[in-house]
């Protein structure tokens, strides 16, 4: 078995759909990550970010129970935390300031999300 791609990484997960959130948590933990969350509401996400000064990466569902995740994304950007967006939306609904962010369009397997996030984190570290 290959080395865990996200070993020891603290990964924040925001996903309102329990089953997807749980699957994702499982996939990330399989890769060695320490999952913060998952949380289903924007308020929870913002709180989590506030509580954890050290966040290595994040997977953000764009739409959290009807609320858009952008305030959280903005906070993470400010802190230079790499993150992925999971979404059912078209690109056009992503604000231009986050247009460069890697988007994982549902349906996607949690394992794929984990791999994509690992690339993101490594790319970020390399830079």
């Amino acid at each position: 078995m290959a080395e865990a791609m996200l070993a020891g990484r603290r990964v924040l997960v925001a996903e309102d759909e329990y089953m997807l959130a749980d699957d994702l948590r499982q996939a990330l933990e399989d890769e060695g990550a320490v999952v913060l969350g998952p949380v289903p509401h924007l308020g929870d996400v913002l709180a989590l970010i506030g509580q954890h000064p050290q966040i290595d990466a994040a997977v953000l569902d764009v739409n959290l129970g009807g609320e858009m995740v952008w305030p959280a994304a903005d906070l993470l950007s400010e802190r230079g935390v790499p993150f992925l967006l999971t979404t059912g939306y078209e690109r056009s609904s992503v604000p231009s300031r986050h247009a460069h962010v890697t988007r994982c369009e549902k349906p996607i397997t949690p394992a794929e999300i984990a791999r994509a996030l690992a690339r993101e984190v490594q790319g970020c570290a390399a830079a």
């Binding site: 089953m19 979404t87 059912g88 549902k106």
Partner: peptide, 19 residues
């Protein structure tokens, strides 16, 4: 957009359900 969101979410749920 909303429909996209719901549909794709639903598909993700179906996938998870299948798992």
């Amino acid at each position: 957009a909303e429909l996209q969101h719901r549909t794709r979410n639903l598909l993700a749920v179906v996938r998870s359900l299948a798992d």
